[in-house]
Write a protein that binds this DNA or RNA. Structure first.
Length: 356
DNA sequence: GGCGCAACCACGGTTACTTCA
DNA sequence: GTTGAAGTAACCGTGGTTGCG
């Protein structure tokens, strides 16, 4: 019996894939590939990769480029960053002098930072990330990005209102030091983080600091954002995988049901037309492992019910789905039980497979 | 080389907050 | 105005790795 389950390049193994809701790259910027064992990489490997990446800042892209086929891209902007906005959105590890770009003192990006005055950094952050904490008067604060391209027409006034609101919330929180700090990142900040996530799903300290500077966030915020983003990606991937396996299960169940039904039909046919058994039987059997059909002519003799089977010929044929169904029809007509020759044939299966 | 310790990081799970229908 | 769901920033605990004495 043949059941083809292909996760690879089968033209259309499962029709249900067409029914899955709108997994269109164009629409959602979503693409997924099911690779071999990429999803089960050990944490050791990942940690090692990270370490290597951190040790070698000049080779940042190695981790990305060595990523196995498993890929989930949920990002809203599908175009590649550097071809998309090469002159406006730049990552600090790609261009070091962005903050000193001419004309950075004014522009639509001014006042984008939700946490313009991150005065509530923890003691640890003060020590660890203190170098990255940017004062409003530093060169970092003068950094601006031309987000208008991404704003979809949002005016500067809108940005200012949003920033003012965020600043207000921040100041409220500062007054009430006991409350947890939770400040919504602006759309522009999120978009930039998304783009950088597209470049690197993990950050080394250098990148983290640079991103934090660039977006006027605390390095801790950038770190947390990347952690949550990875978690979201993984969650989405799990959901997709789950759905896929569910559909696979349904398909296999349906196939099993169909085969059971077919088997019942064959049995019914066999009992209703027993005279076929008296004919010189031509065995049509299929090796489950190599999917070859073996045609065997068998002479049945004996008067006391003991049959001496003698194989006269044995030919093997490569099968595909078409020939399989033809073989099934032939099998229905010939009605021959699974014979001992099959077992002998199966013992030669490895040779068949090697030959094919 | 083996061991203990501290520091760091990533991750999973959870909480608290915001936004929106 | 209220409410529940969804999204997400932030936090916590844990395990792994690395460097040092």
């Amino acid at each position: 019996m043949e059941l083809a389950l292909s996760l690879g390049d089968a033209p259309k193994p499962f029709t249900f894939l067409d029914k899955t809701p709108k997994f269109s790259n164009k629409d959602l910027g979503f693409c997924m590939g099911l690779g071999t064992s990429s999803g089960s990489r050990s944490s050791d490997e990942k940690t090692r990769e990270t370490r290597e990446s951190e040790e070698d800042d000049g080779d940042e892209r190695r981790r990305v480029s060595s990523d196995p086929p498993l890929q989930l891209d949920l990002l809203p902007f599908t175009p590649v960053l550097r071809t998309h906005q090469p002159s406006q959105l730049r990552f600090p590890w790609l261009t070091d002098n962005l903050a000193s770009e001419p004309g950075s003192s004014d522009g639509p990006g001014r006042g984008l930072d939700v946490n313009r005055f991150p005065t509530v950094a923890t003691a640890a952050e003060e020590t660890d990330d203190g170098a990255a904490l940017s004062s409003p008067n530093s060169t970092v604060s003068s950094f601006q990005m031309d987000f208008c391209v991404r704003n979809g027409g949002r005016s500067k006034r809108d940005l200012d209102v949003e920033t003012e609101r965020a600043s207000s919330r921040a100041s409220d929180d500062e007054e009430n030091g006991s409350t947890r700090k939770k400040l919504r990142l602006s759309k522009e900040q999120s978009a930039f983080l998304e783009e950088s996530f597209k470049e690197h799903s993990t950050l080394n300290p250098k990148q983290k600091l640079a991103l934090a500077k660039q977006l006027n966030l605390r390095p801790r915020q950038v770190e947390v954002w990347f952690q949550n983003r990875r978690a979201r990606t993984k969650l989405k991937q799990t959901e997709v995988d789950c759905e896929y396996l569910k559909r696979c299960c349904e398909t296999l169940t349906e196939e099993n049901r169909r085969l059971q039904k077919e088997l019942q039909e064959l049995r019914a046919l066999k009992t209703s037309q027993p005279f076929y058994m008296q004919l010189p039987a031509t065995t049509l059997t299929m090796c489950p492992s190599c999917e070859r059909v073996a045609t065997t002519t068998t002479t049945t003799s004996g008067t006391n019910g003991n049959a001496n089977n003698t194989t006269s010929t044995s030919t093997t044929t490569n099968t595909n789905n078409t020939t399989n169904s033809a073989a099934m029809s032939l099998a229905k007509a010939r009605l021959y039980p699974f014979s001992s020759q099959v077992q002998a044939h199966m013992q030669q299966a490895p040779a068949h497979q090697a030959a094919s």
